[in-house]
Amino acid sequence: MRMFAALTGAMVMVLAAGMASAEVAPARQAKLKDMVDQDCGSCHGMTRHGGLGSPLLQEDLAKLSAEAVIETILEGRPGTPMPPWKAILSREEAAWIAAYLMGELK
């Protein structure tokens, strides 16, 4: 059962990464990278070591599934300053950012 969950998680991640690179145009990818550095960076640090927001290094995100990261980006974390970004980012773009943060994409 646990293995099934892990597999599903891995599949979601692979799917997310595949979907992301398929549907986010290269020019937009550059823009998203910049957004991660600059706009996410204003709380999480430009080097992602954290600030008012938690660190977003690969080892920190390894505890989470790609789906959880995507949901956090789109819906935010109620009760914390992390806002929902869904008005600015599509699900595909959030998936691309999740994969980028988690080290699936360069």
Partner: peptide, 8 residues
């Protein structure tokens, strides 16, 4: 009716 706060 607050909006998401994208920057503090």
């Amino acid at each position: 009716e607050a909006l998401p706060v994208y920057k503090m």
